[in-house]
């Protein structure tokens, strides 16, 4: 699809904003609608858009498979690790209260970290899924869209 001039230009304009919006949704999820799940999907959709316009191989140069594979595991690890950290401080698993000076601040930090973990996993899984499906058919299949 890379030969369509309009799509290339509009895509180039849109992708940074989609990424920015994803970050906003991720880190503003405590106050407005949003959170790790949504942010992960939005973030992934930016990369999918890039892959649709410029081809999967180019997208994989930016975000190699190894990085994605690490990301998938890292998110789960962050989530589970937070629970272990609170256990080390003597609290029950996944009780974030001891992570800061006051319990409520600890909860806030805990939610923040956990959402980050969720976001990383969801984004990496979604991009990986797309890459796998797209690569299966070779490069010509993307013209179907």
């Amino acid at each position: 699809m890379s030969h369509h001039f309009v799509i290339r230009v509009v895509g180039k304009l849109l992708i940074p904003f989609i990424l920015l919006f994803g970050l906003y949704v991720q880190f503003h999820g405590d106050f407005g609608p949003g959170g790790g799940f949504q942010a992960g999907v939005i973030f992934a959709s930016a990369f999918v858009l890039y892959a649709l316009i410029y081809g999967v191989d180019k997208a994989r140069e930016i975000l190699p498979d190894d990085v994605l594979r690490v990301g998938i595991a890292l998110g789960v690890l962050i989530f589970g690790g937070t629970g272990v950290v609170s256990m080390l401080w003597g609290a029950p698993y996944l009780d974030y209260s001891p992570l800061a000076s006051t319990p409520s601040a600890g909860q806030h930090i805990g939610i923040f970290i956990v959402e980050l973990g969720v976001g990383i996993t969801v984004a990496s899984v979604m991009v990986t899924l797309f890459n796998l499906f797209a690569r299966r058919g070779g490069d010509d299949e993307l013209d179907a869209e």
Partner: peptide
């Protein structure tokens, strides 16, 4: 449901 949607797509 929020989590179910994302799990659903996976």
């Amino acid at each position: 449901i929020l989590t179910a949607i994302v799990v659903g797509v996976a």
